[in-house]
């Protein structure tokens, strides 16, 4: 366990140079998100996405410092190296989402204060849904991204990430278009009921499953990498 702690520490020390960038980014997102009551809801998504991407940059630090072989010469192994990355990235996402929720609530209060509209009517359920949605989106990108970084390296992985985000956006737009133009014979009430009752659980389960599959694939790739 100490080895994993050491590996996580190494990544956090690398990321410490991002302190100011993170603060400026969070302030920037909070500022632009506060322009209207509608855009406030997107703050948790934007913040968790930004922090998630910063977490992925630990791979770039390793690559630019060529530290991979040195790390493996320490009393650790490939499995622990991968485990530490996933722990760091998942923790980063959780913290990113929590920060996102807090900033959103703060932004709502600040907007209400500026507009002098009294105590804001905050839909906590909606903020939570958006935060979880952001968490899900970032997790999906990372779950695909991490194994590909292990396979092709951080530099090529970055290009691949932009392609991936583009494909995801196109896919979502396609689904929205299809849903808006084609009539399905689906029991919408049943689906609404299902997601209303078990949506959070399903989303959390999906996130766990995505990371689990991603971890297994990364392990397999890294084990055979020389």
């Amino acid at each position: 366990m100490n080895n994993i702690k050491g590996l996580i520490k190494k990544d956090l020390y690398n990321l410490s140079s991002y302190k100011m960038t993170v603060l400026v980014l969070v302030a920037f997102i909070a500022l632009f998100g506060s322009f209207s009551e509608d855009s406030i809801q997107f703050i948790p998504i934007a913040i968790s996405a930004a922090i998630g991407m910063i977490m992925l940059s630990t791979f770039n630090y390793d690559e630019s410092s060529k530290s991979e072989h040195y790390i493996l010469s320490l009393p650790t192994n490939k499995r622990e190296v991968i485990k530490s990355k996933y722990i760091l990235i998942i923790l980063g996402n959780i913290i990113g989402s929590i920060i996102g929720v807090i900033i959103t609530i703060l932004a709502a209060y600040i907007v209400a204060f500026i507009k002098k509209s009294g105590i804001p009517q905050i839909d906590y359920g909606l903020i939570f849904t958006y935060a979880l949605g952001g968490f899900f989106g970032v997790s999906l990108i990372e779950a695909i991204q991490i194994p590909s970084i292990y396979k092709w390296g951080a530099e090529k992985g970055r290009i691949q990430m932009f392609i991936l985000i583009f494909i995801l956006v196109m896919l979502i737009m396609g689904i929205v278009y299809i849903a808006g133009n084609i009539t399905f014979n689906i029991d919408l009430a049943f689906l609404e009921n299902l997601f209303g009752k078990y949506g959070v659980l399903l989303e959390v389960l999906m996130i766990c499953l995505m990371y689990f599959i991603s971890y297994k694939v990364s392990n397999k790739i890294y084990k055979n990498k020389e």
Partner: peptide
């Protein structure tokens, strides 16, 4: 645990300092 290694082209990271190396190595 009983080996010390120096690799020509590879080390921990270029973006940390001496104190941080001490803190990391304590764990290993």
């Amino acid at each position: 645990q009983e080996i010390g290694v120096v690799l020509d082209d590879s080390f921990l990271s270029d973006y940390i300092d001496i104190k941080k190396i001490d803190s990391i190595m304590k764990d290993f």
